[in-house]
């Protein structure tokens, strides 16, 4: 347990330092950074990381696995971007023709963690045609505003395609 907390704090400090480096590129001669910025970055990242790691790491360290981040990248560049492009063209068609059939439907994805349901709801909102309106925090059911209702009581497969499967692999 103590080991886990030390690991969580260390990872948070490294994450803070990485973000600080992103913000201060092109400041000097050490590859892209100056010595001043590196020292200030280490000090600030240590303070902020130690203060905030309990907020970042809530339950366990499952997101520290780099395989999950590679999967997340593959998900955003692959199926997510593709369905976003497809759905944008669909909404473009609806904007021009005015053919809509809106409604709020309920779906029950089989996701348990906060991160999973957040990722799933944001994916749904970002693909045009669907907009998550509310979430039932006890049962994790999502209420989705659908611009073209094809099915009055749909499964999450019909609303969001393969998103649920991907999100489960990334975040749970």
């Amino acid at each position: 347990m103590l080991m886990n907390r030390v690991l969580a704090a260390t990872l948070t400090v490294f994450l803070c330092f990485f973000v600080y480096l992103l913000f201060t590129t092109a400041s000097g001669a050490y590859i892209l950074w100056s010595l001043d910025e590196l020292i200030a970055g280490i000090i600030l990242a240590t303070i902020i990381g130690l203060v905030s790691f309990k907020r970042l790491v809530k339950r366990d360290l499952r997101m520290a696995n780099p395989l999950r981040w590679i999967l997340a990248l593959a998900y955003f560049l692959g199926p997510f971007l593709f369905s976003m492009a497809k759905a944008n063209l669909d909404v473009a068609y609806r904007v021009i023709t005015g053919k809509i059939k809106p409604g709020i439907v309920k779906i029950s994805p089989d996701l348990k963690t906060d991160l999973g349901i957040t990722l799933f709801a944001n994916s749904i909102t970002l693909t045009p045609g669907t907009l998550s309106v509310d979430v039932d925090e006890e049962t994790n059911e999502l209420y989705v505003h659908w611009i073209n209702v094809k099915e009055l009581h749909p499964t999450s497969q019909q609303v969001a395609g393969s998103f649920e499967k991907w999100v489960r692999r990334i975040a749970e």
Partner: peptide, 21 residues
């Protein structure tokens, strides 16, 4: 889309997602 759609939800569809893309 913001001008054509009838209510706040459908306008959000146009107004947030097309702008993201």
């Amino acid at each position: 889309g913001l001008l054509r759609f009838p209510d706040v939800y459908t306008r959000l569809h146009a107004g947030t997602k097309c702008t993201t893309f």
